[in-house]
Each structure stands twice: as C-alpha cells, then as structure tokens.
C-alpha cells in the first residue's frame, strides 16, 4: 500500500463528519471515493491532506521506494512535501497570478532559494529559477493548457481552470494525486478528455490516483476499486461491478423508502 487510513474520524462540534473510516490505496491504482452529498468525502480528503487534523485515527503513507511513516496531524505543506497533492472541489487557483506562476508555486516545496538568494541572484538561484520555468512549462504542455501560459488564471475558461489545478498539483512531484470532483461542471466532451488525462497521468507519469466524483460513468470507466461513504461511514468497497450491485449503496443513493 502507499496510503492507509485507519479508523479515521473527524468531528465538528458534536457532528461526526467522518466516522472510523479505513481506506487503503496501492501503487498504480485508480481508486474512487463516492457517496451522496454530505457523506464526508471532502472532509476525508481534508484530513488526509492535513487541512483538518483528524479527531481520531491514523494516516500512514509508504511512498514507492520509501518506508512507511505516519502523516497524521502534519501540516498541509509538510504533507505536500511528502508527495501527496490534491485539487479542490470548488477551484482554488491563485486567480491573479498567471497560469505559469500557478504551476511554479506548485513546484515551490522542491526549491531551495532563500531570501539571500533572491536578493543576490547568485548562479544557483538563477539556474533554479530557469529550471522551474522550464519544468512548469513542460507540465502545462502535458496537461494541454500551454497556450494560456501568461494569462491570469481567473481569465481561463472553466475546463482549463480545472486542468490548471491538476497541473499545479503535479508540479509538487507527488506519488499520489487526490482529485476532488475533477469532472464537476464539465460537459460530456470535456469529461472524455479528462478520462484520457487521468489515464495518462497513471500510465505515463506513474501516479496513483484517488478521486472523489459524482459522475458515475467516469467512476465506472476509470476506477479499479471504489469506496462508498454515507453519513461519514464507509458502507461499501469493491470493484465497480460489486459496488454497483451492493444493496447498501443503492439504498444510500435512492433513500430508504423510495415512495417517501
């Protein structure tokens, strides 16, 4: 495994948003986390990426070629440094920065330049900057938005903004990419293109993908395994076929009593 959450719980006041969830992700997989609105999926992502410190439970990572360590309660930037990158459900780009700068920020945690370097612009700092610009541009090309390179992020069309979020996440050089509703608001054609992109990220970039998604056709097409959450709890887990026929899942989506 490369990510393991054990009995992870998150409380807000008296409300238990995530309730003793166990999830395991293996290298090279595409795994989906689904469930009705308010099931606690995004909260789970937030716990894993350090936005909220979990109330209970543990999160461990085991990067490819590394050793297993706990990342429970680490700050988001430390977790990003360790190789977990994410996108946000409601796009959170740096709206006034250019597309290239957005990606360059993603690369930030791999850089070394300090204040002195910034002021003196010594050889090492200059080379580092040039490398960042080069790499960021390469990433934009991979994601297919290099034509927007010097535009402000807020001026991009919606689909390109979603792609830029992915580009920025990849720039942190992660081994695991967490995508929070990457297809939200996209039209069928854009969703198809997203399919290709996600597959390419896994097959070419060798990333493991963990995604939250409401578009069931995308989930069924892409994921090898699916976890289902409802009311904060994990209610099912298995292959797409298994999950599709699971009575608990059907109940969660359609409600206890259809006539009510």
């Amino acid at each position: 495994m490369i990510l393991k959450a054990t009995q992870l719980s998150m409380d807000f006041g008296g409300l238990r948003a995530v309730d003793r969830v166990d999830i395991e992700i293996h290298e090279g997989e595409i795994v989906a986390l689904i469930g009705p609105n308010g099931a606690g999926k995004t909260t789970f992502f937030n716990c894993v990426t350090g936005v909220y410190p979990p109330t209970e439970g543990q999160i461990h990572i085991n990067p490819p070629g590394g050793t297993e360590v706990s990342i429970t309660g680490l700050k988001p930037n430390r977790i990003a440094e360790r190789g977990l990158a994410r996108t946000f459900q409601n796009i959170r780009l740096f709206p006034n920065m250019t597309v290239l700068e957005n990606v360059m920020v993603g690369r930030d945690c791999r850089l070394k330049a300090g204040i002195l370097g910034a002021i003196l612009r010594d050889r090492r700092t200059r080379e580092e900057e040039e490398q960042v610009i080069h790499d960021s541009h390469e990433i934009l090309k991979k994601i297919g938005i290099e034509q927007h390179v010097n535009e402000q992020a807020k001026n991009l069309p919606y689909g390109a903004q979603r792609r830029l979020e992915i580009a920025r996440a990849i720039a942190t050089e992660p081994f695991l990419l967490l995508l929070d509703e990457p297809a939200a608001g996209m039209n069928p054609q854009e969703t198809r293109q997203l399919d290709d992109l996600i597959l390419r990220l896994r097959d070419v970039e060798k990333l493991t993908i963990f995604l939250i998604e409401h578009d069931m056709s995308l989930v069924m097409r892409l994921s090898e395994r699916i976890y289902v959450m409802d009311y904060g709890e994990l209610i099912a887990h298995g292959s797409p076929a298994e999950v599709k026929s699971n009575p608990l899942v059907i109940k969660a989506y359609l409600g206890e009593d259809v006539s009510a």
Partner: peptide, 11 residues
C-alpha cells in the same frame, strides 16, 4: 491570494 491552496501545494 489563497492561503489554503498555497499550503496544500506545499508552500
């Protein structure tokens, strides 16, 4: 511009 996003990106 966005403190949370910056943190999540490792800043």
């Amino acid at each position: 511009e966005d403190d949370i996003a910056a943190r999540a990106m490792g800043v």
